[in-house]
Design a protein around this nucleic acid. Structure first.
Lengths: 105, 105
DNA sequence: CTGTCATTTCCATTAATGTTGAATTATGGA
DNA sequence: TCCATAATTCAACATTAATGGAAATGACAG
């Protein structure tokens, strides 16, 4: 991952509503959630939600699919892994980052 | 790490100059670099640099120490690890993030 | 087609962030 | 003390991002 792409992903996550949306979609798994359901759970007005989803989508962190009348959003785990890889490679140097990967707390 | 703290750290890194500064300090290791040297290497005006260093410092991602006439900044690896742990726990769900932790690329 | 519901776009407003020269403060050597 | 250098703060300005109501678009059932 390139720095510019990483910055776009970091910017997307560096906002209260969007981090909440993304975490919710991660919990929801590959099935995802309808936009309206996200708005309901997080109590975000539809226009604001749409704005934030567009940001996340632009960053490649979420995907959407039409399903009947609903637009279903889901987390893009691959992109999140790319971001984590970038941060681990570029922002931890030779230090023992993630020293105990199976038991992070 | 709490969400609010994570957002502050993410915001700090989600900016071109600051990400460059942080990466440079990671490369520099625990010895760190003088503010002036950072400004020189990255060609950032001193006042801008100071502004960005304050942001990184506020996010806990860098520390500073006075050394003679210089202020030496260094990356805070512990905080970066906390951020990575937060992202791994909260933004990867049950998915196999970092499936090969000893060989991330 | 028409009505209904889901979502997005548009728009205006507000808030937050980034930029940089100039002034200021801090440090240490002559 | 006085000077030179290092770094920060200040202040003004420019840019970008967030918010949310209202209108527009899209999807589908009847």
């Amino acid at each position: 991952m390139e720095s510019k792409v990483a910055i776009i992903a970091l910017s997307a996550l560096a906002q209260e509503s969007r981090l909440a949306i993304f975490r919710l979609l991660v919990q929801a798994g590959i099935e995802g959630l309808a936009a309206g359901r996200i708005a309901e759970i997080l109590a975000v007005p539809p226009s604001s939600l749409s704005f934030h989803l567009k940001e996340l989508s632009h960053a490649g962190l979420v995907s959407s699919r039409q399903e009947s009348r609903f637009v279903i959003y889901s987390a893009n785990f691959a992109r999140m892994n790319q971001l984590l890889a970038y941060l681990t490679e570029n922002c931890c140097g030779g230090q023992p980052c993630h020293s105990s990967p199976s038991a992070h707390l």
